[in-house]
Design a binder for these strands. Sequence first.
DNA 1: CTAATATTGAACTGTTTAGTATATAATAAA
DNA 2: TTTATTATATACTAAACAGTTCAATATTAG
Lengths: 210, 210
Amino acid sequence: MVQNGLKPRGRPRSFDESDALEKATQVFWSKGYDGVTIDDLVDGMGVGRPSLYAVFGDKRAIFLRALKVYAERKGARATKALLSPHTLRDSIAGFLRYAVESATEKGSARGCLMMCVAPLVNDAEVQRFLQSAVAGGVALVERRFREGITAGEIPPDFPVTARAIQVTDFARGLTMRAQIGTPRRTLLKDAEEAADLVLLPPRRNAVPRR
Amino acid sequence: MVQNGLKPRGRPRSFDESDALEKATQVFWSKGYDGVTIDDLVDGMGVGRPSLYAVFGDKRAIFLRALKVYAERKGARATKALLSPHTLRDSIAGFLRYAVESATEKGSARGCLMMCVAPLVNDAEVQRFLQSAVAGGVALVERRFREGITAGEIPPDFPVTARAIQVTDFARGLTMRAQIGTPRRTLLKDAEEAADLVLLPPRRNAVPRR
DNA sequence: CTAATATTGAACTGTTTAGTATATAATAAA
DNA sequence: TTTATTATATACTAAACAGTTCAATATTAG
């Protein structure tokens, strides 16, 4: 246990670990997984080759850590976009808008590391992580729908699970189109219309009153 | 115009050109674009290395042709799934079911070459092709919705364009989840519910958004 | 100061890869 | 049968690549 907070013994590192991971994210995002070479990572992360192997391991290990960093940051922002607004409609639209905005950000590659790059990595751990991320997204939206029922914004028979899945499928569809170059404004408009759609009240079996 | 149907002059080829392209599709689909080497193509297509370069060109050229073959076949089947059924609901559900089924076929890689592999190819021509494929899909669904209006299955004020976009976005979302391993039966159920959603009649009276 | 410890830059090694050259084989025409 | 033509198999070359080695460097502990 001893040396927590104490100065480490040898020569100090010339890079910041989490900073380097952040940069790795950009490298993978812009070049894909198979498209990235160790030299790309050495250049992009600003970490010398032997240090890179010593501290992070090989390409697969670096990608796993970068993916988790990315997912955590993106998940936090998506959660904020979803849970901050007061009205349900603003929440859902905000969630989808965030998906579009983050997928069309200038300066970064278009799309999303989790949806456009990671699925192609043939690796069981990556796949498991992605599945849990998908499930987490659905659960989050589902929770917001339940709050909407409590607040009386949607009827108690609103199919929360199905609609939550549909919201996240929309996010995926929008992100995909972002990746192939669909303009942001188009996608933002489509996000609004998707929000309208998933908030439509379900068909009642009962005969409408009045 | 001379030698159409005539025997060609030199040594005959030991492979069938379109057959080899079909096999190339499988190679790219299962290994991604950057993950594929020329040797993978030589092995997978059954074409010797020098013949491969002479007949098809380099990796990028092979991918382009394979992508077009794939898109044509898949587009034809999707069109059939969409336009064959009598009822609109069967058409839309059939379209989404086809997306799920083709993305979860046993023997092939999961997902879709156009959505899961091609977008990562950093190439202007590929991107243009994908954009036109997306637009074509929307136009097709839109057309089916219009027929549904004519047939009285949906009201004349049904927002055909917006809903057509939503149908194709759903297909993308479902395909994406197929790629990361979501089971077919789950996706088929979600496809049905998505079909129900996009067929809900639009709100008649102007409803306040907030 | 000296010893111990940890990181770094540079260079090295064996392998994989893309693209090509060359010699051989199979066919049609003459 | 001979010749022209096209395809194929083998093998080659130069470059890119992953992962490691090693001496030099920067820091702490005694």
